[in-house]
Write a protein that binds this DNA or RNA. Structure first.
Length: 479
RNA sequence: GGUCUCGUAGUAUAACGGUUAGUACAUCGGGUUUUCAUCCCGACAACGCGGGUUCGACUCCCGCCGAGAUCACCA
């Protein structure tokens, strides 16, 4: 049987880290099996619907490289893929249940239901609607909620992550199938959709685990073969023991993207948060994930989100891309991350800057802070220079003299290559009798006034002869 | 409160009825002619607690403790 998985988000606007992971695993399962992944938009709650949220979901999946085979944009034989457009389908399936006596219209006003609930809470007994089932149920028509008629019994089932599960009759209840507004609830809609779309693996967060008996009852009443169930444990917030959420400062995927986290790193990190293949490999490309993924190695307990590891992985990926494909492959991705001062500089120059700085990037947005002095003369800050821990010991006149000596020496270089520059710098060490830490710090600061920069000869080389000498002379004069 | 689930260093995890309990991130220290970073070397650091079963348990069983999920006309 062909494997069909799905990612079925609600368009509520904000895609946090935890949500994406429940898109990654279905994707990996589908690709590994040569099956299909469906994207379905669960927009039956009109109150929570956010304009543009669907596009955000599509955009995020595309960015991560998680392409879907059926769904919005690409279409497919089982559409529509928006639940809001499938109302008549749900009503047809609901009719089956009404006909077989497994569903009934419930005219009970919400206030009354709330009272029942409170009564039970007061008595400290579980609130089960089936015990309050009205006996004067009218004929169902849109405008009245439709409830499932539960038949309490034991259920046993298997969850690919959690293992063998069982429950007693006490958890079965008359859940709402169709809401007053005519839209189905998630509980009903997802079962109908999965059946119609041929979904073989239902992968979702563990929060649905406790609803499983009710779903099983529904599959039974509808005469459906249940799919494979896969409960994905939560991703926990860095602090506390709560599920990761907006309040924990958890950034959305979009924010990480805007901060210059690579899609490869994001995918790698999230796939390996709560899953491993048993080896000690840390860096996985998408293809490797597809190849090595297995449901039975998904962790059972929740995993804590660790941004530091994400950023480490991102650095690894930046270097991996350069090592395997060259800086040219990394460069196109840096487009939105250069400082404003870089405007007007051509790609060739920026590429050269990138080639000496990429090694230090944790995220691409670090470029903004780290490369400014390549594009405009830094503000001369003599305090910064004089208070440097290696330069403190020198008097201002000594510094001035050294800078002049450096300037004269470098000016003699005919071919401004990084090798020649290194030779000249080495000769200067001998000629001045200074330690590398002293001489190089001095030059480095004079040309950049930055807290750190790439190797001195490379920086000088990229900056060019004219700019380098001008900056050194300017500092010598300013002292 | 009912039901269900989970429990290896700060974090993510590996392994196994018998190991010095492995790896990575983080932290700290050292090295690679300056800084920052990379890279390399090193250090710190864990089987929640208590009972069993067993020659032997982190591993199997029970209890406790701790944590989480769920109990909506939200998904």
């Amino acid at each position: 049987m062909k494997v069909i998985t799905r990612f079925a988000p609600s368009p509520t606007g904000y895609i946090h880290i935890g949500n994406v992971r429940s898109a990654i695993y279905p994707y990996l399962v589908a690709r590994q099996a040569g099956g299909k992944m469906i994207l379905r938009i669960e927009d039956t709650d009109r109150a929570r619907y956010v304009e543009g949220a669907t596009e955000l979901i599509e955009d995020t999946l595309e960015w991560l490289g998680l392409n879907w085979d059926e769904g919005p944009i690409v279409g497919g034989p089982n559409g529509p893929y928006f639940q809001s457009e499938r109302k008549s389908i749900y009503h047809q399936w609901a009719q089956k249940l009404i006909d077989s006596g497994r569903a009934y219209a419930d005219p009970t006003p919400p206030e009354v239901i709330e009272r029942y609930r409170q009564e039970c809470n007061a008595k400290k007994i579980p609130f089960l609607y089936r015990n309050f089932r009205p006996d004067d149920s009218p004929e169902w028509h849109p405008g009245i909620p439709l409830r499932f008629k539960a038949e309490p019994k034991d259920y046993r089932w298997h969850d690919a992550v959690m293992g063998d599960m069982h429950s007693g009759p006490e958890v079965l209840d008359d859940i709402i199938l169709i809401k007053k507004d005519g839209f189905p609830t998630y509980n009903f809609a997802h079962i109908v959709d999965d059946a119609e779309m041929g979904v073989t693996h239902v992968m979702r967060g563990v929060e649905y685990l406790s609803s499983m008996p009710n779903y099983l009852a529904l599959y039974e009443a509808l005469n459906l073969q249940p799919p494979v169930f896969v409960s994905l444990p939560h991703i926990l917030a860095p602090q506390g023991n709560k599920k990761l959420g907006k309040r924990d400062g958890a950034k959305s995927v979009t924010e990480y993207r805007e901060d210059g986290v690579l899609a490869e790193a994001m995918l790698n990190y999230l796939a390996c948060l709560g899953w491993n293949d048993g080896t000690e490999q840390e860096i996985y490309a998408k293809d490797e994930l597809i190849q090595n993924f297995s449901l039975d190695r998904i962790q059972v307990s929740g995993a804590r989100y660790d941004e530091a590891k994400l950023l480490w992985l991102n650095g690894q990926w930046i270097r991996k891309i350069v090592a395997e494909q060259g800086v040219e492959a990394l460069y196109p991705r840096t487009q939105n991350f250069w400082p404003e001062s870089s405007e007007g500089y051509d790609d060739e120059y920026k590429l050269r800057v990138l080639s000496i700085i990429y090694d230090r990037l944790k995220t691409l947005s670090d470029l903004r802070e780290m490369t400014d002095y390549f594009f405009r003369d830094p503000r001369i800050d003599l305090d910064f220079l004089i208070n440097n821990k290696f330069l403190k010991k020198f008097s201002e006149s000594e510094i001035e003299a050294l800078l002049k000596q450096v300037s004269v020496k470098l000016a003699k270089i005919e071919d401004w290559s990084s090798d020649n520059l290194q030779d000249a710098l080495n000769e200067l060490l001998l000629e001045t009798g200074k330690k590398p830490a002293e001489l190089f710090s001095l030059i480095r600061i004079a040309i950049s006034f930055a807290p750190f920069s790439p190797a001195l000869n490379l920086t000088l080389h990229v900056l060019g002869r004219e700019t380098s000498l001008a900056r050194i002379n300017a500092v010598a004069q300013a002292i």
